[in-house]
């Protein structure tokens, strides 16, 4: 097991290297220019050149990449080209919010999706089942921003709700923080909820059709044991796969959600940095998110072997 994990971690290196090269190049081929955005349209060619010189943007690309990478590898993600702030501390402090948002929305979506998926499987082809399937279809197919707008509209008309202006950290005031986070979390989690619901329904159904379920009933087991101890435990394996995949969607979704609900998270940082062509911040943040994503997927793979004894990692 330990050797497996070590090997998996070693395999992350080429993946993250690929991501870093990719984002480095993308940031340099998107139209728009850092010096121009800073100095405005009326800047003289000399001042533009000077600024580029200062940021090292006139160096050959591989040198720029090498400089950035050697910093990253020693834990120095560089400074923002706009504010001069250290990038890594900024990423970490903003990631706290994004992490909390992702976690809450994942939890909410599981709490709703897994029970509903089970109910739909047990009551297959009834109206309840059709209802659940409709909800999951909506969850998967309605885009986050649309759902956010609908929810904000409904809430503001019915309860005169408005998206919070001032963000309050969880450790400052947990209740107020949750109040701020809950609606963005629900919106963000809707697609994961839909996907998990669908997967729970189909895999519980699939397991309930297996021969061994009949053996358990033949032992005299109650339906509750059949469903929760056996059907759900077995179904958790494919459900976990979909959760692992959806984590990416969730992390990506935070960019939009944080913007809509004006939450100062990592997503917002990335978006602002992209608009300002703040290369160093974008590169650092994207690399960081990629790391989180692959790390969570590694975690999911390790969890598999606990859920399924047939999987043996060597």
């Amino acid at each position: 097991m330990l050797t497996y994990i070590t090997r998996r971690i070693l395999m992350l290196i080429p993946v993250l290297f690929g991501v870093s090269v990719f984002i480095f190049i993308v940031m340099r081929i998107v139209p728009g220019d850092l010096a121009m955005t800073i100095l405005g349209n009326n800047a003289t060619p000399e001042s533009l050149h000077q600024l580029r010189e200062d940021f090292g943007l006139n160096l050959p690309l591989y040198v720029q990449y090498f400089n950035w990478m050697s910093g990253v590898l020693t834990g120095d993600f560089g400074q923002s080209m706009r504010t001069g702030q250290e990038v890594l501390p900024d990423i970490l402090s903003r990631f706290k919010l994004t992490f909390e948002l992702t976690l809450i929305s994942a939890f909410i979506s599981w709490i709703i999706a897994i029970p509903l998926g089970i109910i739909a499987a047990v009551k297959r082809n009834t109206n309840t089942d059709f209802g659940v399937r409709l909800i999951s279809l909506l969850g998967v197919s309605v885009p986050n921003f649309a759902l956010a707008i609908i929810i904000i509209l409904v809430l503001s008309l019915a309860f005169s709700y408005s998206p919070p202006i001032e963000y309050v950290g969880f450790f400052e005031n947990p209740l107020q923080n949750l109040e701020i986070m809950i609606i963005p979390a629900i919106v963000l989690g809707s697609s994961m909820a839909g996907a998990v619901m669908r997967m729970t329904r189909s895999s519980v159904l699939e397991i309930l059709r297996q021969d061994f379920i009949r053996t358990i009933r033949a032992k005299g087991a109650r339906e509750r044991i059949v469903i929760f101890n056996h059907a759900l435990r077995n179904a958790m394996i494919p459900i976990l796969t979909i959760i692992g995949l959806q984590v990416g969607t969730l992390l990506g979704g935070t960019v939009i959600i944080e913007q809509i609900f004006s939450l100062p998270g990592l997503g917002q940082l990335v978006l602002t940095a992209i608009n300002q062509r703040d290369f160093i911040v974008v590169q650092g943040a994207v690399l960081f998110i990629a790391f989180v994503f692959v790390f969570i997927n590694l975690l999911v793979d390790v969890l598999y072997s606990y859920l399924d004894p047939r999987i043996k990692y060597k």
Binding site: D211, F212, A218, K219, G220, R222, N234
Partner: peptide, 24 residues
């Protein structure tokens, strides 16, 4: 019926390969 199943009447099903829960 649940009191009888497995206690007074038990059954061995046709397929031994799939009769057991794979994860326990």
């Amino acid at each position: 019926m649940m009191k009888i199943r497995g206690k007074d009447i038990s059954i061995i099903f046709q397929e031994p390969m799939t009769a057991l829960d794979p994860i326990f």
